[in-house]
Design a protein around this nucleic acid. Structure first.
Lengths: 173, 173
DNA sequence: CTTTTTGCAAACAATTTGCAAAAAA
DNA sequence: TTTTTTGCAAATTGTTTGCAAAAAG
């Protein structure tokens, strides 16, 4: 179930303006890489994109695909799912529960199941499969990070200009 | 906010019976590793567990911690969050949306936001931070895998006895 | 003793980085 | 020609594995 023509055109329009605004070059490979992701609804991994791009451009390298995908993500043209620089984390709470996740420091807090209302599963979802359970992730900024941000806004009065590179240490675990 | 004494005791009781039933030995390091995870609510990574266990047992090795944590997970004593053997995946759908995820083959299907009811955020969550948005993950078995399972049940009439080891290829991407 | 578990070191998979060459502007 | 982007190869991170020695029953 690929995105329809209309959606695709919209995506390319965004691609044009975003790249223009950011002042980055629309190279052969960037175009091609974007085309592959934009015309898929399978949430491909970097490798999967790579494999497909290679058909048309046998000389691309995997690391260009990675770099490019992250560039697009930073431009807001793509979103990611799955791990970024995350490690597996273990939880002795084996009751089904939901999570509050701080997008800034990765702090995770368990939310007991009965604190959130149950999400009703619409019939349309049944087309895709049988739902076994529902996990809600509330994403936000934890108290700690809120405080830090207030301070840094006061002193620097500037939001972080570049997305965070891989950091050494410092993360909640 | 560590688990209270009561919860802790319950967890250790489960530890006792689960290990006994599985016939695995309650070694010094297993005890210690379990103690660390069970008495934390910070969803520690393997490394974080390792660091803490090392305080009391300077000779443990990181790989024992990993092995042990997975053993506990297989016994149902722990749950994991975050990546397991997953790769990052990219999505050109930048509208906020939810997901249906097949727990068997990792197939992911987007669910438009207005198909699911909005989850009401209870005030109690505000103690942990400011919620920016909500992501619902419906986990289940996709149509494809359902069909496969039917077949394999007919022919083998046996559920997979061991949890899946790292597989080469074969995953939806 | 026999079987399980450990620690070590080496292997691995996914991803990132440094750098010189190639391609834009 | 100056700046950006690429491809390559090497590095890094998180995690897993083979194996001989050590510990448990």
């Amino acid at each position: 179930m690929k995105p329809d023509e209309k959606t695709l055109q919209k995506r390319f329009k965004r691609f044009q303006s975003a790249t223009q605004q950011a002042g980055i070059k629309r190279t052969h490979q960037r175009l091609e890489i974007f085309r592959v992701v934009a015309s898929s609804s399978e949430h491909p991994s970097a490798e999967a994109v790579y494999r497909e791009v290679k058909q048309k451009m046998p000389t691309v390298s995997l690391d260009t695909v990675y770099r490019t995908l992250w560039t697009f993500t930073e431009l807001g043209l793509l979103n990611t799912l799955g791990p970024r620089q995350e490690k597996v984390r273990f939880d002795a709470n084996t009751e089904r529960h939901h999570h509050f996740v701080c997008v800034s420091c990765r702090f995770v807090h368990d939310i007991e199941r009965d604190v959130l209302q149950d999400v009703k599963i619409p019939k349309s979802v049944q087309n895709w499969g049988a739902v076994i359970h529902t996990h809600v992730e509330l994403r936000g900024i934890c108290m700690n990070c809120q405080r830090k941000q207030e301070k840094s806004v006061k002193s620097h009065s500037r939001l972080s200009p570049t997305p965070p590179k891989r950091k050494k240490g410092l993360n909640n675990e």
